[in-house]
Design a binder for these strands. Structure first.
Lengths: 220, 220
DNA sequence: CCGTTAACTTACCATTGATAAGTTATCTGT
DNA sequence: ACAGATAACTTATCAATGGTAAGTTAACGG
């Protein structure tokens, strides 16, 4: 057992316990990805932390990329959950949109690495990067679909807002895209350039939300 | 001479002509980076296209990263130039901001790979990604500084607009950050997810610009 | 207690960015 | 003309990477 690991369990797994090894690998991979980034994390280092040989990882994942996707799904579940909660507890259309934006930005800042991986494709292969925004028709059980689900919720929220009488300055889908792009601009900037002397981080979030609401809602 | 290359010149360079080899390397690297991306482009492939051995590249660049930075500087020069032209020919403060946004977005869409490299840090080392936004005090001759210069121009444009009487809803630097973030959100989304069925690409650009102008300018 | 097979290891592969050390061709001073 | 000096370049090699092949060990069912 590796003293520096939170995942290693030491010995060989008993039959039928392979799934616990899989979770140990995910845990170790998550720690290392968050500590050092995707590229810097090698399968050998993950294997070391778990306490197995490198090829053992390939018993549980087809490749490195799928480990990352499994982790993204896990983390994005939290955001999807909090959006569902907003949808089920907040009825005012304006407030829903605002709360979505707040939750989205809060999530991005709380999970910058997962955000980077899904929405910015930082240091990951092309095939992974494309998973952030997928067509609505794509298989919802497919790994890495989290980002697309989040975006789809915003489209629904804004479409429902319009259906319930809110006048928009642009088509509903365009409004959703503008809203997402604006908040994504804030999130990605704060995440990718943490060392930049931003004038006022909180004001950038609330200000952008104000600007977007005013811009997409007629008379907003 | 490699028949598939636009850069290879065949033989050994004469003394004092090393700079032409350097430019050939940059040209070949640019083609390959744009065709296949940064990671997929190996120094061996660059060297093949130029028609020299791989280690020969290290006579002209300390590493692969510096090749990319040199290319980014080259390309960003075009954007900096067009911004300078706007500043020298457009006097109306509102129009200046709008024209900046248009030029910025147009540049991003015309040079998506360089944009990714400087502003999104896609598939490149941490050290390169950080160069997009640098402190104003940084050495302006340093490779990769282009993105920061562009942002600094926007700060100036908005600060001058305020000084000339334009009323802003937020501090000038915050307005610049919001403006940049919003346009960056549009640019990065369209660049990173080109296959997504965006409702209306042109409207997203002009719409976001409208929204931002209205949002940061009092009574705008 | 024996055979099946899940769980895992050792040995290996091609490719990567990069370096060390040697070679060749061109220029300069005499 | 010729002898360094050195710019320009090559061959050989390195350690690290993601991934594979093939064998080994241990746990379970009958």
């Amino acid at each position: 057992m590796n003293a520096f690991s939170t995942a290693a369990t030491g010995g060989r797994k008993k039959r039928g316990e392979g799934h616990t090894r899989r979770e140990e690998i995910l845990q170790a991979a998550k720690e290392l990805f968050l500590e050092q980034g995707y590229e810097a994390t090698t399968i050998r280092r993950i294997a070391d932390r778990v306490g197995v040989s490198a090829p053992a990882l390939y018993l549980y994942f087809p490749d490195k990329e799928q480990m990352m996707l499994a982790l993204c799904d896990q983390t994005f579940g939290y955001l999807i959950e909090s959006i569902r909660e907003i949808e089920s507890t907040v009825s005012d259309p304006r407030e829903r949109i605002r709360r979505f934006g707040e939750a989205y930005l809060k999530f991005g800042l709380a999970h910058p690495d997962e955000y980077k991986l899904v929405f910015l494709g930082s240091n990951i292969p092309e095939s992974v990067r494309k998973l952030g925004h997928r067509m609505p028709t794509d298989d919802p059980t497919r790994p890495g679909i989290g980002g697309a689900i989040v975006f789809q919720r915003l489209v629904s929220i804004i479409a429902e807002a319009e259906a319930s009488g809110l006048a928009l300055n642009y088509p509903a889908d365009t409004c959703a895209e503008l809203c997402w792009m604006a908040m994504h601009g804030v999130a990605s900037a704060l995440i990718l350039k943490p060392e930049f002397p931003w004038s006022n981080r909180d004001l950038l979030g609330t200000g952008m939300l104000d600007i977007v609401m005013k811009g997409i809602i007629r008379g907003g």
